[in-house]
């Protein structure tokens, strides 16, 4: 029984082991080594990568001084990811609700439409988006032609553009789990609430939202976490000057040839996400035990 189960699971376990755990472990090890001159690592134990993240060496006194340049990149990434998650939720929830309340026969067609953007490569989608929103692009062209603005709006290469790109990239991750939750929702509960003198907003707030909350939480995590480490949207739409964590890490492996530092930045991100998720899971376990 248990052997058969192990056998069935072995492809998955092998996959996770070789392509997830091993690389992550490697990354963790690399973060404690010294950088090689032309990339790669020297097998010398060093905590420089982590020290470099939080401190810089004063030119004159050679003392370590606390600095926030990298922390601010993390902070900005969090804000960007949070903004993208909130916007995705505001767009995604009504969309999911709309799809889940269509007749069953047409629902799968709507779900298919949600996945349409995924038929085109993310890089190409992001570049096309850049073409639309740049100063000479059709969006600004239309705005100036109609006379809403005199000069082209600065949209490309701003934080707003990055948020736009993130929302566009990850919106389906918000829609699909919420849709699944709303589809399972028993609509007779809505009738019951209405029968018991609740108005529309109260029904949404007190009946629908609490019962579909797991789907909303799943959607938020699925948008927030990849947004946090996003690379393509901030690189292309932010013009590479408004760095996010993903860009910082990529830069260390490509331009700066400082693999241990890139690894350390990635490990720090991973730790933050893991700690946050653990706290969240613990709190949910506690609250459901409390009931």
């Amino acid at each position: 029984m248990t052997r058969a189960r192990l056998l069935l699971l072995s492809p998955t376990l092998a996959m996770i082991g070789f392509f997830l755990l091993l690389p992550v472990a490697l990354m963790a090890v690399y973060s404690f080594l010294s950088p090689g001159t032309y990339g790669g690592v020297e097998w010398l134990l060093s905590f420089d990568a982590y020290i470099q993240f939080f401190f810089e060496r004063d030119f004159l006194t050679d003392e370590l001084v606390f600095h926030t340049s990298y922390l601010s990149i993390y902070f900005r990434s969090f804000v960007q990811a949070l903004a993208a998650t909130v916007i995705c939720l505001l767009i995604g929830f009504p969309t999911a609700y709309f799809i889940a309340t269509r007749p069953p026969a047409t629902r799968s067609a709507w779900v298919l439409l949600v996945t349409v953007p995924y038929w085109v490569n993310l890089l190409i989608r992001t570049v096309s988006m850049l073409f639309v929103i740049r100063d000479e692009g059709p969006l600004n062209g239309a705005l100036t032609a109609v006379g809403i603005v005199d000069a082209p709006l600065r949209i490309a290469y701003t934080d707003f553009a990055i948020a736009l790109g993130l929302v566009y990239s990850y919106l389906p991750f918000m829609v699909l789990p919420i849709y699944a939750a709303i589809e399972r929702f028993d609509f007779s509960l809505m009738e019951a609430a209405c029968d018991l003198y609740a108005g529309r907003w109260t029904i949404l707030r007190r009946i629908i939202l609490p019962t579909v909350k797991p789907g909303v939480v799943a959607g938020c995590l699925l948008v927030f976490i990849p947004s946090l480490g996003a690379y393509i949207a901030p690189d292309l739409l932010g013009g590479g000057k408004n760095l996010m964590i993903g860009n910082l890490v990529a830069l260390q492996f490509q331009g700066s040839r400082n693999w241990p530092f890139g690894a350390a930045a990635a490990v720090l991100l991973l730790s933050v996400v893991l700690v946050a998720l653990t706290v969240l899971a613990r709190r949910r376990a506690l609250s459901s035990a409390g009931n």
Binding site: D186, S188, L189, E191, A192, A193, C194, D195, L196, Y197, A198, G199, I207, P210, T211, N291
Partner: peptide, 22 residues
């Protein structure tokens, strides 16, 4: 009058109790 303005209440066939409330 909409349902929430009528002084009548319903016992539903499958009860429709709110699952997240005591």
């Amino acid at each position: 009058l909409p349902p929430h303005k009528r002084p009548v209440n319903t016992v539903f066939q499958h009860y429709a109790l709110f699952p997240h409330m005591t």
